[in-house]
Lab assay of single mutants.
Amino acid sequence: MATDAALRRLLRLHRTEIAVAVDSAFPLLHALADHDVVPEDKFQETLHLKEKEGCPQAFHALLSWLLTQDSTAILDFWRVLFKDYNLERYGRLQPILDSFPKDVDLSQPRKGRKPPAVPKALVPPPRLPTKRKASEEARAAAPAALTPRGTASPGSQLKAKPPKKPESSAEQQRLPLGNGIQTMSASVQRAVAMSSGDVPGARGAVEGILIQQVFESGGSKKCIQVGGEFYTPSKFEDSGSGKNKARSSSGPKPLVRAKGAQGAAPGGGEARLGQQGSVPAPLALPSDPQLHQKNEDECAVCRDGGELICCDGCPRAFHLACLSPPLREIPSGTWRCSSCLQATVQEVQPRAEEPRPQEPPVETPLPPGLRSAGEEVRGPPGEPLAGMDTTLVYKHLPAPPSAAPLPGLDSSALHPLLCVGPEGQQNLAPGARCGVCGDGTDVLRCTHCAAAFHWRCHFPAGTSRPGTGLRCRSCSGDVTPAPVEGVLAPSPARLAPGPAKDDTASHEPALH
């Protein structure tokens, strides 16, 4: 009773807030009518008042009428009001819900409408889902798969039609296919003929059939049928067999079959498995989609049935006599038709004709302190090069084509190399640097090759510096006499390219 009084008091307290929050009759008014909170006449009256005075006034009048009803109607109103779709449509209802007392429970059932309790003993237990329907569909599909699609060729003596089998029958139906081979029951999904010589313990000319048996419980189990008994694959494991010639990621696949039913060829011909030897223990289905393919039931050349050999690369099948050149017997292992072999060759040939990528240039590290003349020119003028003790990398590039010797140069053309002071002394051009340390401070000019250098860098042994005729380390061993002091540049003949010694390969005349 306390809860009923509290709900009535809360409705009177929030009546105006609810009326202002509800700006549309749908969905709240319609939901109240659906849950029998508002009768039909009051529903029509509220809609009429909404058209006349507006939605807030109409709902305020409806809530005032609701306060005169019993506690069950008020409880049902609060339940409908706080439904998710009403809270989404009328956003101003959320503060009312947040301020609702926590001790007021809106989930209690309506009085007088409590459903009768059902004894637990009368409640049926839930049924577990079964796979009976899938099993029945598999039974119905198996006879259809064994139905012949056409008439065999005159040369083929193997013609068999499976008798119709009602689904209610649980007995196995067997077809006489000759040579002791028996087909599987209607619940078998796949059958492959297997030679009895590969099964340990088999006697006589009995041949087993590799099947997948579907049981009534819905589970499946792969086994071997020899005669009327089934054997699990673990009985046929043979770890010492060295003649297993397995197909790549293979499961067994029928390579020879008669049109209309699988079996042995007439005249004692023995149908073979995809792999010879003992049956392997793992009978998992292969991951290669080509091995799941269903080959055609007629020859791809003459479009006739009979004894066919199936290609492992495509769905086509052929007569042995229709092949070019014809085959006398079934080859062992994987067999592919000429079209598949030709496609494989065409895929391999473009790969062989692809040009080989060019090898990157060989990189040879230079000892610290040495650099090529090109690196000396590329440096920024007026700045010493940083990191001189790091190992430089010199790339061996292809030799350029031989060019004509340089033409003779006048001494005026070499004027930018040297600057003559007032006393006739050779001065260095701006930006000249030593080729060893890279520093341009207090550098000297070689009178023979006009290269800038430090005496301490080229002659670290402490050799005394002569007063005139300074030469760098590369030119100090040259027998050519030094030019007379005061000459602007060496003779043009000295600039012609010539053979250089091994220790002077990195010091070429550089223009500054």
Rank of each mutant, 00 (worst) to 15 (best):
P56Y: 01
G150N: 02
K83P: 01
S153Y: 06
L29Y: 01
P266T: 11
G260I: 14
V123C: 13
K245V: 14
D4L: 02
P101V: 00
E229C: 02
L32I: 00
S195N: 06
E216A: 06
V192Y: 13
P115E: 07
S250E: 04
A33P: 01
E229S: 06
P125T: 14
R8K: 04
R12G: 04
N86R: 01
K102N: 14
L47R: 00
Q225W: 05
V80M: 05
V206Y: 09
R127W: 09
P95Q: 15
L7Q: 04
S220V: 06
H60G: 02
E40F: 00
A140F: 15
H14N: 15
L32H: 00
A145H: 14
P101T: 00
A205T: 12
K102R: 15
E88S: 04
E237P: 06
A160S: 12
L122N: 03
R190C: 04
D4P: 01
L11E: 01
A21W: 00
D70P: 00
F230G: 05
G112I: 11
E51P: 01
S187P: 05
L146T: 11
A193L: 03
L29A: 01
L93Y: 00
T147R: 10
A117I: 07
S185P: 03
L63N: 02
G269T: 15
T130C: 14
K131Y: 02
R92G: 06
F43T: 01
I18D: 07
A160V: 14
R203L: 11
D238T: 07
R110G: 14
L63I: 05
T232N: 08
L106G: 00
A21N: 05
A246F: 14
P254G: 03
A145L: 13
L49N: 00
K83S: 02
A191W: 02
Q189S: 13
E51Q: 05
A58G: 01
R247T: 08
A152P: 05
R79P: 00
C223A: 06
V80R: 00
L273R: 06
A160W: 15
Q172D: 12
V188E: 05
I74R: 01
L75F: 06
E51I: 00
R139W: 15
S185Q: 07
L158C: 05
A31G: 02
L273G: 09
V22S: 01
L93N: 04
H48Q: 15
R92W: 02
L75K: 06
K222E: 09
R127C: 08
V199R: 06
E53N: 02
F100R: 00
D70C: 03
S241C: 11
P143M: 10
P116Q: 14
L122K: 04
E167L: 15
R113C: 14
A134S: 11
L210M: 05
Q262V: 06
V37K: 05
L10E: 00
R190L: 03
A271G: 06
L29T: 01
R79V: 08
K50R: 07
F26G: 00
M184F: 06
K259A: 13
L87S: 01
S71D: 15
K159Y: 14
S241T: 11
R113L: 09
P233F: 01
H35P: 02
P200C: 14
S217F: 04
A5I: 13
W65H: 05
P176E: 03
S156I: 14
P143H: 11
A25N: 00
F26N: 03
D23M: 03
R9H: 02
R127Q: 08
Q108E: 15
S185A: 08
R8T: 01
K42A: 00
V118Y: 14
K159E: 09
L255F: 14
T3L: 13
P119S: 07
H60L: 01
K120P: 13
I96Q: 00
H35C: 01
E216G: 11
L93T: 01
D34N: 03
L7K: 01
R139A: 01
S156L: 15
P101R: 08
E207F: 06
G228E: 06
P109R: 06
Q189P: 05
S239N: 14
T151I: 14
P125E: 08
L146V: 09
G268Y: 03
E45L: 03
P176L: 15
